[in-house]
Amino acid sequence: MFNALVLDRSEGRLQVDVQELVVDDLPDAGPQQVHVEVLYSSVNYKDALAVTGAGKIIRGGYPIVPGIDLVGRVLESKREDLEEGELVIGTGWQLGEVDWGGYTQRAKVDGSKLVRLPKHMTPKEAMVAGTAGFTAMLSVMALEDHDVDPDDGEIVVTGASGGGGSMAITLLDTLDYEVVASSGSEEAHQYLRDRGADRIVHRSAFEDGPERPMESGKWAGAVDAVGGQTLATLLAQLQRHGTVASYGNAAGHELNTSVFPFILRGVNLIGIDSNTCPNKRRQAAWRRMASVLSSDDIQEMTARTVGLDEVPEACEKLLSGDIRGRVVVDLQ
């Protein structure tokens, strides 16, 4: 017997309960199935939408165990390169959306969607990072891949007070970049400075879109969680050969821009897909994150650690803005 947080729908109403299950209750994960003892998960914005019913996140039908992140120990494996006892991370690949996710003490996961926990990272630290940290690391790696160096100028991070944004600030600061945080929350200013922001600008500086197709080059690079008019402004304001890593659409999915920044300044717009990121790059990102962040860095990002029965409350608080920092779910 083990415990899991189960979402179900009855007569159109969402039900959220911690239930006792047995291993046979877990859906089969296919020919490369790995049975995992889950040690930790985390609470992300997408999880909060799923657990509260505030967003259409669940696409695999009900009942389902939510939780888009997990880290745990392999109990049994049908995949030759993952052995019993190894520690593995699962993020993305529709975990907690289509497939049963991480809010459970036992999980059956397609082994092709797992990567090994880096040697210098603990299971709990991995879930402090979670999808937010993984996405942020992919974004920073995209800047590096396009030769955006710390001495090139400021890097602006939009949606800075969110999980991905604040993680990006910490990573960039640790790598000696000069970081500008863009946020609409004045209450978040001290938190952003603590994460490593050198200065803060209000999101209104970007959200109305650019006045001209190309404006004065301000930024060597950008990490954008917002999209829409904010992304259009960033493209118009990038310095020559600057790069923006885009992973979100908080302000909308449409992008109204021109070709001028691309053909006259050679700027780069790089999409960050943390959900189906290939495993080779996925593993590289986790290893890089483990090498960049210290245990102290990760500890400072942790808002609180909760048990399985506290997840619904944590989701409500995350959506209402009452939690700043990462929430870890302890499943041991």
Results as ranks from 00 to 15, higher is better:
F2A: 11
A4E: 02
R13L: 11
L21I: 11
D24A: 12
D25P: 00
A29N: 00
G30H: 07
G30M: 13
P31V: 14
Q32L: 05
Q33W: 10
V34Q: 06
V34I: 08
H35A: 06
V38E: 02
V38F: 12
N44G: 00
Y45M: 01
Y45A: 01
A50K: 03
V51S: 01
V51W: 05
T52Q: 01
A54G: 05
G60H: 04
P63C: 00
G67Q: 05
L70Y: 08
L70N: 13
G72R: 12
V74C: 00
L75Q: 06
L75A: 08
E76Q: 12
E83A: 08
E84R: 13
E84C: 13
E84G: 06
L87P: 01
V88S: 05
I89V: 15
G92C: 06
L95N: 09
L95T: 15
G96L: 05
V98S: 06
Q105F: 13
R106L: 10
A107L: 13
K108W: 08
S112E: 14
S112V: 02
R116F: 12
H120A: 13
E125V: 11
E125A: 13
V128S: 03
A129K: 08
S139F: 11
M141C: 04
P150H: 06
D152S: 09
E154G: 01
I155N: 01
T158K: 12
G159T: 07
A160S: 08
S161F: 07
G162S: 04
G162D: 02
G164S: 09
G164V: 15
S166Y: 03
A168K: 06
L172M: 07
D173A: 11
L175H: 11
D176R: 10
S185M: 03
Q190L: 09
Q190Y: 05
L192P: 00
G196F: 00
A197Y: 10
D198W: 11
D198G: 13
V201Q: 06
V201I: 13
F206Y: 15
P210H: 15
E211M: 07
P213D: 15
E215G: 07
K218H: 12
A220M: 10
D224M: 07
G227P: 02
Q229T: 02
T233S: 15
L234C: 04
R240N: 04
H241V: 01
G242W: 01
G242L: 07
V244Q: 03
S246C: 11
Y247T: 00
G248M: 01
A250C: 04
A251M: 05
G252L: 14
G252F: 14
L255W: 15
V259R: 12
F262N: 10
G266K: 07
I270P: 03
I272V: 11
T276Q: 13
T276N: 07
T276H: 08
P278H: 04
R281W: 14
R281Q: 08
R281G: 02
A284M: 15
A285E: 02
W286M: 08
D296I: 10
D297T: 05
A303K: 13
R304G: 05
T305W: 13
L308G: 06
D309K: 08
D309R: 09
V311T: 01
L319V: 07
D322G: 05
D322K: 07
R324W: 14
V328W: 09
